[in-house]
Design a protein around this nucleic acid. Structure first.
Length: 744
DNA sequence: TTAGGGTTAG
């Protein structure tokens, strides 16, 4: 990555005779000038402009110290314009170091921190000032905001050259910098080398751990801080510790923190109450959260949103909506919390409706990156490509920077909506300058679900060339790619390398993938062997993968073992009964099939109903087996009859074998097969969309064998591409063939 | 001068 900083720091100027402090050179004759005193009382931009004009008339503006006072007033007062401050700065004939520092600091907390680094570079290029111990914390903060690791490291290098690397402010800033760049090792290296750690050093490291998904270590570090007698935990420490408790879900620790605060007389603030509210909510202690909320004398939109999320977690979406409706002010964060609560509770359609409501009902609150990421996630779940495309266009139109979060969501949305080319286009976009592990993993996952195993592995290798370290998700996707493409040797290789080569301990889900790879390839013994040697408890998904493989290969003995184990872990898993009965049926053991069905009925278990959806003009239409609820139902069934007769004319015979699992379907099997949800969706797609656009279907379960054959034939007879996403992967039907090459 | 609260990606 190209650095923004030139190599001018090799030729750093000698110390200037002027001040090396961040106090603007007090010149006795000017510091109490009445015009400058006015600056301290200045509250808005127009007043500042008047004072600026007066300073120009009096010639005061050409004195560096007076000019620095103006810059300070322009950047520190809440209602001023940074652009105006910059215009003024550029007019100062000889800005002093204080002015440079002040402006860099202002950029650090502005929407465009990048200008801060550019200004720092300009200062070095001019060569009149040498950055001091105040410059570095500001410049490093800019780098933190940008998560600019290489620039940050360059800044650290400069600080070392200038002998400022033992300054505790510089070091504390570096901890925050490296944490922002997700490099906790570097952050910790800085932390341990600070000779005299102050509260900020500790707080920075505790926060870094809490915010990087390592709340246990954050709490441990707080313990060490308490043991250090040279430093006292303060309000900020409490906020970070409460946040760690919330993330860990540790109510007991959270309550101890509350009494610690009271015992040590740490003053409560709004931020601290909000952090505590969040802790209660995330730990499921809703009554405590509500009680605290009721006691709070001051509340802001964060308090309300935190309460809203607590309700969403403990009482469900309706309760969250009722908090939302009672909120006095709703900012974009409140909307995002509501949309996200909805999306995460398995209601992606409602989440998109809320996204729509946000745009229709308010003009002041605009969607931000979080809104878009959440909405894209809902589109991905639904396979809502039109809405997803619209959001992509919105991102471009509004000028959102294509950062890793947005790129990951777009890649995932396009992949899951069946447009792999578009996903790849986002991945390769020139606007995406740096790709983090999420972006790479999403693209590998996209290729995997479309059955492009070799391409996925190739990308995995490219990722390593780019020096991006794979994580657990990356491996899930790589193994998934191997599974869908039947790449057994590659699967074995990468699975065996996970811990020794990449330092990623395989989770139960990785074992599940590996069992899937081996099982599908018919290597059932090896799969069982792998499960028996697992160093961690086998999750139900591991046995599920084995059972699925037994169904494919009709292995009764291993199948019985797998279902037994699966049901021990998940007694109400309907899939286990269905798969096992399927295997019995394949062997003609109808008595056992009957027994299983009876057992399911006794337990009140029902096979999850198959549901297929298709998006037309931004509206998602859902179909169940034999569904007649669609307004165009008559046309759909008439199309289905036409399809059936054209299929028969080319010699198609329905495949009834997979129907044997459902007792309800025994009568009129062929009829039931005829109106499977995926066939209804295909028929609707044929009448409501035009070639060459593919018919895109999303199914909640695995596609049935007969529907798979029908889709292949329809793709030839009607010369239409059908893209179908099932529970596990994509099937692209083109000219009578499927991209899965029958390996599914 | 540096550190802190709600909502986001598999």
């Amino acid at each position: 990555m190209a650095t923004l900083l030139p190599n001018t720091f090799l030729f750093l100027p000698q110390p200037s005779s002027s001040s090396s402090s961040q106090r603007p050179d007090p010149k006795p004759n000017l510091s109490d000038h009445p015009t400058l005193s006015l600056l301290d009382q200045c509250t808005n931009l127009s007043q500042a402009k008047q004072i600026h004009a007066r300073m120009l008339r009096l010639g005061l503006f050409f004195d560096p110290y007076s000019a620095s006072r103006l810059i300070t007033a322009l950047t520190l007062s809440p209602s001023t314009s940074l652009d105006y401050a910059r215009l003024v700065f550029d007019q100062i004939p000889h800005p002093n170091l204080y002015s440079w520092n002040t402006l860099i600091r202002a950029y650090a907390s502005s929407p465009n921190p990048r200008h801060g680094l550019l200004l720092f570079s300009l200062m070095l290029q001019r060569g009149l000032h040498r950055p001091n111990k105040y410059t570095f914390p500001f410049a490093i903060k800019v780098a933190s905001e940008l998560a600019a690791l290489s620039e940050g490291r360059a800044l650290q290098g400069m600080a070392v050259k200038l002998g400022l690397d033992s300054d505790v402010f510089v070091l504390n800033s570096l901890i925050h910098l490296y944490a922002s760049c997700s490099d906790l090792d570097l952050a910790h290296q800085v932390f341990v080398r600070i000779p005299q750690r102050d509260a900020v050093s500790w707080n920075s490291m505790i926060t870094a751990l809490a915010q990087s998904g390592r709340p246990e270590e954050a709490l441990e570090l707080f313990g060490e801080m308490e043991a250090d007698e040279s430093v006292r935990p303060n309000q900020v420490t409490m906020v970070s510790v409460l946040s760690a408790c919330a993330k860990k879900g540790d109510l007991e620790f959270g309550k101890r923190v509350r009494s610690y605060i009271e015992r040590n007389g740490i003053r409560c603030s709004l931020t601290m109450n909000n952090a505590m509210l969040d802790m209660y909510g995330k730990c499921g202690a809703l009554e405590d959260a509500q009680m605290l909320f009721d006691e709070m004398t001051e509340r802001d939109s964060v308090s309300w949103t935190t309460l809203l999320f607590g309700y969403a977690k403990c009482r469900g979406f309706r309760a969250a909506r009722s908090v939302f409706d009672r909120m006095p002010d709703r900012d974009i964060g409140s909307w995002n919390a509501l949309i996200s609560a909805c999306e995460q509770s398995g209601r992606p359609n409602d989440a998109l409706a809320l996204f729509h409501e946000l745009q229709l009902t308010t003009s002041e609150v605009k969607p931000d990156q979080v809104t878009l990421v959440t909405a894209l996630s809902a589109c991905a779940k639904l396979g809502a490509l039109d809405v997803g495309r619209w959001i992509h266009a919105y991102i471009k139109k509004q000028g959102f920077e294509l950062n890793c979060h947005l790129a990951t969501s777009l890649i995932d949305m396009y992949s899951k909506c069946g447009d792999l080319d578009k996903a790849m286009e986002v991945f390769q976009s020139a606007n995406l300058k740096y790709k983090d592990v999420y972006v790479w993993s999403a693209m590998i996952g996209g290729l995997a679900m479309h059955g492009c195993g070799k391409a996925a592995i190739d990308l995995f290798l490219q990722m390593q060339e780019a020096k991006v370290r794979p994580n657990a998700v990356t491996f899930t996707n790589v193994l998934c790619a191997c599974s869908h493409a039947g790449l057994v040797d590659e699967g074995r290789l990468y699975f065996s390398q996970m811990l020794p080569v990449y330092g990623v301990a395989p989770l139960a889900s990785h074992y599940g993938c590996m069992v899937d790879i081996l099982g599908r390839a018919g290597l059932l013994e090896e799969a069982v062997d792998l499960i028996e040697k697992m160093p961690i408890p086998a999750h139900y998904s591991v046995w599920g993968a084995l059972l699925g493989a037994c169904r494919v290969h009709g292995n009764l003995e291993v199948g019985e073992l797998a279902s037994k184990r699966l049901l021990e872990l998940e007694p109400d898993n309907d899939g286990a009964y269905v798969l096992l009965s399927n295997i019995y049926a394949k062997h003609g053991r109808w008595d056992d099939v009957g027994k299983l069905r009876k057992l399911m009925k006794e337990k009140g278990l029902k096979k999850e109903p198959g549901c297929s959806s298709i998006e037309v003009d931004g509206v998602v239409h859902e179909f169940l087996l034999g569904d007649v609820s669609h307004p165009l139902s008559r046309e759909i069934y008439s199309k289905l009859d036409e399809v059936a007769s054209r299929l028969k004319s080319v010699g198609y015979v329905p495949d009834l074998s997979q129907l044997l699992r459902d007792v309800e379907e025994e009568e009129g099997k062929e009829q039931a097969l005829h109106c499977h949800s995926e066939k209804l969706a295909i028929a609707f797609g044929l009448i409501s969309t035009e070639a060459p656009a593919p018919v895109r279907i999303v199914k909640n379960l695995r596609i049935c064998g007969d529907c798979h054959s029908v889709a292949k034939l329809v793709s030839v007879i009607y010369d239409r591409e059908i893209v179908l996403r099932d529970r596990y992967r994509f099937h692209h039907f083109r000219k009578g063939e499927c991209s899965c090459k029958e390996y599914w």
